[in-house]
Simulated scan of single mutants.
Amino acid sequence: MPVHRVRFASVRSQRDPSAPAPSVDAREAAEERLLEALAEAAGADEPVTALAAILEDADPAELPLTGAGRTRAQWEILATLGARSLAAARVLEPHLDALSILAQADVPAPSGLLGVYASESGGVTLTATRLTKHDDGSDTWRLDGTKPWCSLAADCTSAVVTARRQDDGRPQAFLVDLRHPGVDVGEPAWPALGLRAVTTGPVAFDAVPAVEVGGPEWYLQRPGFAWGGIGVAACWFGGAVHAARTLRAQLHRRQARADEGRGTGPDQIGQAAYGRVDRLLRAAAVVLGAAADAVDAGELDHACGMVEADRVRGTVAQVCTEVLQTVGEATGPGPLTQDAGHAQMVADLQVYLRQHHGDRDDARLGAALLEDEHTGAEAWW
């Protein structure tokens, strides 16, 4: 089945519609081939294993990394894959995020599927202890403790992990080999139906060697921290596109029956739902496209990036919520009870959207805008 690539709208330039379509360069052709392979793997019996195999063979230098001039391509790929399978997008997103983080810190990326584990919830703490300092200025570190909310830890070969430094308590990122004998992947307790293919649970570290990724607090202060959060929103957007396609397919079926004299076709309620979903998705696509262009133009440093990330994530999360509600009301119980792919996507998206914290994130955005003289951000209106 051919992959229908999701394209974000651009507000920076408009191509003359009468002009010939731009030729596809070798890089974009390679991205299309990768996307086709990922989409096929997403439908395999063991999708995580199939995706991991593709990403392990992929050349990191050929993958679109955030902030390296191909941010739009990365987020479009995430959205496109998300429209096929949110679980598949949930595998790809942290892998690309880890590669981007390592590139920003000038740390060589290991082979295999990569994860990013930065949660500090649940009252558990991972501690980093400095062991030795080398002549080149680098340090040897050891990690001890437990890290919660580690997705696909049993499938990833390595991960970027945040820990608290034992000497001063400051957070720092480290690259860790998850195959080290001191790493104990806990049994995931995941009763939810949403994202059930993406096993998530705690990981215990016992004297595990680690390579520092940036200095103290670099992980949280780098511009890419905000950019990665927008990449997650691109995955959410893909889920909303899937739901919208379910509505479109139902309306087309009704029209086809009407054309055959077996029905009346879509009514105004269905047409209104389709129109509303279209404008909601269009608005989110413009927001995502503009943010991607701003990242690659060097316009979103840490402070401005955090403001823009809260804007984009909040907007896309609201769009996804409204699309799910609109599609559900317009299509009735049929897709949820008879279309396994749609039902799984709805469950996946509802869980995935909980990475957005609603009013708390809006409050952070509002506070940053009110203090724009300190952050360099301001209300655009």
Results as ranks from 00 to 15, higher is better:
21 A>V: 13
275 G>T: 11
308 E>M: 12
78 L>Q: 14
152 L>Q: 08
245 R>Q: 13
37 A>D: 11
259 D>Q: 05
214 G>A: 06
186 G>K: 07
142 R>M: 14
374 H>G: 01
372 D>S: 15
240 A>R: 07
114 L>E: 04
141 W>N: 07
75 W>V: 10
154 A>H: 12
243 A>T: 10
91 V>T: 12
202 P>V: 01
132 T>Y: 00
274 Y>I: 01
96 L>P: 11
187 E>W: 10
255 Q>L: 14
319 V>L: 10
301 D>G: 15
132 T>E: 12
158 S>R: 00
363 A>T: 13
160 V>M: 05
219 Y>W: 09
268 Q>G: 10
7 R>V: 12
199 T>R: 14
2 P>G: 00
318 Q>G: 15
192 A>H: 06
49 T>R: 14
11 V>R: 15
204 A>G: 02
242 H>P: 01
52 A>F: 07
136 D>Y: 10
252 H>N: 05
222 R>T: 11
82 G>N: 07
26 A>E: 15
117 Y>M: 09
162 T>N: 02
73 A>I: 02
340 A>I: 08
206 D>Q: 09
341 G>R: 13
289 G>C: 11
18 S>P: 00
170 R>G: 15
151 S>N: 09
215 G>T: 06
225 F>E: 11
253 R>A: 15
253 R>V: 05
294 A>E: 15
378 E>R: 15
285 A>Q: 10
350 Q>K: 12
29 A>L: 12
187 E>L: 12
278 D>V: 01
285 A>F: 03
